[in-house]
Design a protein around this nucleic acid. Structure first.
Length: 117
DNA sequence: CCATTGACGTCGA
DNA sequence: GTCGACGCCAATG
């Protein structure tokens, strides 16, 4: 089936927007198996966003506290970390990845680590 | 409404 | 392999 982009914005009369898209992205990220990683573009494609890879980062940036979303498993398509080395988020991401068995060298992850199911 | 920016991606030099 | 430029789309000022 082709769910053409028929997604309405799902805006409520109150003016409150329902982050349906963001939620879907989080679900996709949650689907990433442990010890592996996925690129923004890959996640975007799975979420049905197509080329809006940038939206992934935005959605993850909106992540509230208490979430169980392994955002650290999401990296650039070239296998490099999206954040700048030395940044707090960068260090946190690398920490989680290494803990899951992912080798991070020079701010880079082995492309072989790409995979979902 | 226009301009700027951003947790990206792909192509070319 | 590294750098620069353009494209994509949405949020923000």
């Amino acid at each position: 089936m082709k769910d053409s982009s028929v997604e309405s914005k799902t805006i409520k009369p109150d003016g409150v927007v329902e982050p349906n898209k963001d939620q879907k992205i989080w679900l996709v990220v949650l689907a990433i198996p442990r010890g592996k990683v996925a690129s923004y573009g890959q996640v975007a494609a799975m979420a049905g966003l197509g080329r809006q890879a940038r939206y992934i980062g935005r959605a993850l940036g909106k992540l509230p506290q208490g979430h169980s979303v392994p955002w650290y498993r999401v990296i650039c398509s070239n296998g490099q970390i999206a954040f700048a080395p030395g940044s707090e988020r960068y260090q946190e991401q690398v920490s989680h990845l290494q803990e899951e068995g992912v080798d991070v060298v020079n701010g880079r992850v082995s492309m072989s680590r790409f995979g979902l199911s």
